[in-house]
Simulated scan of single mutants.
Amino acid sequence: MRLAFIGASHWHLALYLEPALDAPGTSVVGVADPDPVFIANLSAKLGCVGDVDFRELCRRTKPDFVIALGRHCDMREEAIFLIEEGIPFALEKPCGLNLREVTELAALAEKRGSFAAVPLVFRNGDFLPRLQEMGTEGIQYMSYRFIGGFPSRYEQANCHWMLDPSLSGGGCTINLSPHFLDLAVLLMGDEVRVRQAVMSNAAWGRPIEDYSAVTLESGTNLCLVETGYIYPAPTSTFDMHYAIRSPSRYMVAHDPETVEIVSNAGEREMVRSLTTNVPHYRTFVHDAIERVCKGRPPVAGIADMVPIMRLCEEAYAKAGPLPLRAPLV
């Protein structure tokens, strides 16, 4: 399996590259990114071909599988090329700037029969099956709090574009919320809608929201998704707390590895479950490679991002524009 990475200066590169390098029978044959200095250093480090043009890279190296990263505003162009070239690929979320772009890509991928995986990585872990088991009774309420570190981390990673909504599509809502919007769709059904949304850039005064609270509803069932860039912590460390209620049980995720399940009678069970996204990227990469080799479809594809992006757009519309603020240093 010959892999290539495009849009490689994305801050998530390590989450994909490290498991790709240790996947059996896999080699990285090329990397591409518009930044010539970055790509020269990365290609030298990996001992592979590097190019500033992802099209030229793919035509030179003829990879079996591509992991497509990069700016959100470039994802549509990357995906169209890969679909039309017939190259299996995985495309980082959110797969585009808006619902229109993602819907277009989903339709094109379906028409061409493309392998187009999307890292909705909770689907690759053990937490979702626990939720689905509770869901056999019907989920009444869900709440997900997932607060990440400061937006300055994107500047430190030379991904300044993440702080420009014209290039990223928005802030924590479009970046962090999709994992939980996906859980809401899976557990509450396609009819789920945004009831309320509030967003703010009060913490940092950036053009993107640094805090977001979105309430979803499906009939009488409710879900709250709360995300932000306000936790004083390094990358991949989160202020997190999940709570899920079914008619007979209450589930709480206290930390990245522990879930507590409480019955209506008050009986408590503590179980181990990986409840953040980070550990599942390794599983996602290895699973996607295996599925390409065996001719099987991905666990999640671009079509699965369509309802997520619909909810994102509904949330931004409900919240309204952010106030103009002077950036805080």
Rank of each mutant, 00 (worst) to 15 (best):
I174V: 14
A116C: 13
C73N: 14
G219P: 05
Y229F: 15
E155W: 09
Y231E: 09
Y16P: 11
Y154R: 01
A44P: 04
L216V: 13
M240F: 00
E104C: 12
A106Q: 07
L21V: 01
S200Y: 00
R193T: 09
R310K: 14
G295F: 12
T136M: 02
E77K: 09
L82K: 06
L187M: 13
V185S: 05
P24W: 03
A197Y: 12
H12R: 13
R55K: 06
L108Y: 09
R123G: 11
A203V: 02
L3I: 15
T173Y: 04
G70L: 05
L69C: 00
T61W: 06
T220D: 10
V306A: 01
A8C: 09
G125A: 11
M162K: 00
L108P: 06
R2C: 10
A117W: 01
G96Y: 03
D190I: 08
D33S: 07
V285F: 00
A32H: 03
G228D: 08
R55H: 08
E155Y: 08
D164E: 12
N41G: 10
F180V: 02
L183H: 04
T26E: 05
A44Q: 09
C312N: 08
G170R: 01
A68Y: 05
L328K: 13
S218T: 12
R282Y: 03
A265N: 02
E257P: 00
A44Y: 09
F81W: 10
K318Q: 07
S152M: 06
V214M: 08
D210Q: 09
G70N: 02
K45E: 15
W161S: 10
T26V: 15
K294E: 15
A8G: 07
H160L: 09
A116I: 12
N201L: 07
P323F: 14
Y281I: 06
C172F: 00
Q132M: 04
M270I: 13
C159S: 14
G113Y: 14
Y242W: 07
F122S: 01
D304V: 13
K294H: 15
R193N: 13
E313Q: 06
I147Y: 01
E269Y: 01
P232H: 12
P298C: 12
P234G: 13
L82P: 04
Q196D: 15
S27V: 14
M134Q: 13
S246L: 06
R310H: 09
F38H: 09
A288I: 01
G189S: 08
W161V: 06
C172Y: 02
F284V: 08
T276A: 05
V306L: 06
F5G: 03
S9Y: 04
N124I: 02
D126A: 03
F65A: 02
H10L: 10
A90I: 02
L46A: 00
V185N: 14
P327V: 14
